[in-house]
Design a protein around this nucleic acid. Structure first.
Lengths: 321, 321
DNA sequence: TTGAAAGCGGTACCAT
DNA sequence: ATGGTACCGCTTTCAA
């Protein structure tokens, strides 16, 4: 490993001069600069960020807290984050916290041990963050004074409700996601607002989790609980898929007998047959813009809004009449 | 931020003693230890890993290079890595390299700047790694003397071939993934070995990418290229899904008219209708064991095999007769 | 414009 | 058993 000292010696200047050259700070004579640049080139010098970080008490790393990478929604988020970070010279430290607040604490501690410069969290986040480090909530909004970026789930709910109504839904099952998640709550209220406005006939089916491995069981449950219905508003695409499977298995045609709308717009939603009509969440955008917001905070740039909401969008395919 | 010095003062001992207590190294008197522990407790001291890392020229961070997080296969890998890392006190630094070797180089450089202690890479990896840091190839094996952990794709291919044959495939389309990826090549040769042994009638359909957004187009292409066939061995589940969709759209019944087998076993493969019969890759295991291998390398534990291959497995569902 | 030197927060060697 | 201190690689102040 070549150090700044070696560069200095090779160039015949002091380490201070090398440092100044490196950071474009302070005065550096033309001659010196040239010599230093040559030395760096010749020696293949790469500055050690750890040393820099020790002195500066910060780093070019941001922490990303995710509830569950194996849920196909989050990698999209992560990709957005990663892209922005990478384009701006930041590294992403990953933390999979699984809605486990101990793990979350553990990671936050880890992060601080490594002088991380900011945290982006899509975790449930009951925890209180000491604002020692910039923090942006991703995908989950909260009431209090915290920076956040999320989807307008209320609008998403409205969109879903309208779509079902427009498609002539008469007897509607609405799957309500875990109400502890603010997004699920907002979405439900959006759905109900529309449904009530149209004085539609609906039933609420509570699903207390988004866990992917509960999807099949939940779908079966739904069919046991309700006997006759012609529409379902699923809590997300994975659950929609499970419901579709169960419906087809039971001999219903989609969308003729039962129509279904999902939420998220996952990769497979487009690829399945019939194609799933769904509300697309701008997951990648969310990650990208969240990262931007965080970096702006870190670099003390102006941040217009503490809370930004991105708009979901109806994607029409073939699961609605 | 509370430092070791403050702890030392509070406890009335020297920093050396605090450090020894922290690391259980060297002698520490019972009394001193107690005082130090109290000080740590009272002050809420958390050791700064950056300082430690600067001195030790290593860290508790490992780098993870992925070709594409948005491809649903990799998050599973990542989760395995993350779990093992987390259980053993390591953090993971994420790098999404998109089969772009410039990005890959950039990340490797980043990693070294942060004194990372090892690298796990699922990237295509044309690059030569200087073995300055432990390195394990994930999911992609290579000929040379490098540590790697991957699926036995040759076996996977054989399994797929056998399954199709057992299900009475007569006219078989085999989709050959990008042959630059060693896994795809092995898989193809496994498939062909079985097919040839049975003297089966097959055609090869080349797909030069795994890119998810090419799936639909590729499926349509396949149906244009071949007019009559009764079986498809898809290059992976995403592509299998796309082929199924196209088939159903064209009025074929699955598996009666056309049977399909996939590769990977993704979440949705189970949830779709009909359920996709596929070859499961132990993605999570791969990540987990890869991380274990890397950590063993880092900590200089005994590592039995430089190259380990995990066995894929046939998952029977409903897309085969 | 430049360099010497004092940190940053730890670790570990060497005395005592 | 304990403490003093040099050192890890870099930044920044201060004096020259």
């Amino acid at each position: 490993m070549v150090t700044i000292k070696q560069v200095a010696e090779y160039a015949g200047v002091s380490v201070a001069t090398v440092s100044r050259t490196l950071n474009d700070s302070g005065y550096v004579g033309k001659e010196s600069r040239k010599k230093v640049e040559k030395a760096i080139e010749d020696l293949g010098y790469i500055p050690n960020e750890v040393a820099r970080s020790l002195y500066q008490k910060t780093s070019k790393m941001i922490g990303l807290l995710l509830p569950d990478i194996s849920n196909p929604y989050f990698p999209l988020l992560a990709k957005g984050v990663e892209d922005y970070a990478q384009q701006n010279g930041y590294m992403v430290l990953l933390g999979n916290v699984e809605d486990n607040s101990d793990k979350e604490d553990m990671y936050v501690k880890f992060f601080s041990q490594y002088n991380i410069s900011g945290i982006l969290s899509a975790a449930s986040g009951q925890r209180k963050y000491n604002d020692s480090v910039p923090f942006v909530l991703l995908d989950r909004a909260k009431e209090d004074e915290i920076y956040s970026i999320s989807t307008d789930d209320r609008l998403g709910g409205e969109l879903a409700g309208q779509a079902i109504l427009n498609a002539g839904g008469k007897k509607i099952i609405v799957m309500a996601g875990p109400q502890s998640v603010s997004g699920a709550k907002d979405r439900l209220s959006g759905i109900l607002a529309e449904l009530n406005k149209a004085d539609a006939d609906y039933r609420i089916f509570e699903t207390d989790t988004y866990q992917v491995d509960k999807a099949e069981e939940t779908a079966q449950n739904l069919f046991q609980t309700f006997q006759s219905f012609d529409s379902v508003i699923a809590s997300n695409d994975v659950y929609a898929l499970a419901v579709m499977k169960e419906a087809i298995k039971k001999g219903y045609r989609i969308p003729e007998d039962i129509q279904i709308i999902g939420y998220d717009d996952m990769l497979f939603s487009r690829l399945m047959y019939p194609g799933l009509t769904t509300i697309a969440q701008p997951a990648y955008q969310l990650g990208y813009k969240g990262a931007k917001m965080l970096v702006d905070l870190i670099e003390k740039n102006y941040v217009e809004n503490k809370k930004v909401k991105l708009k979901p969008k109806l994607i029409e395919r073939d699961s609605l009449r």
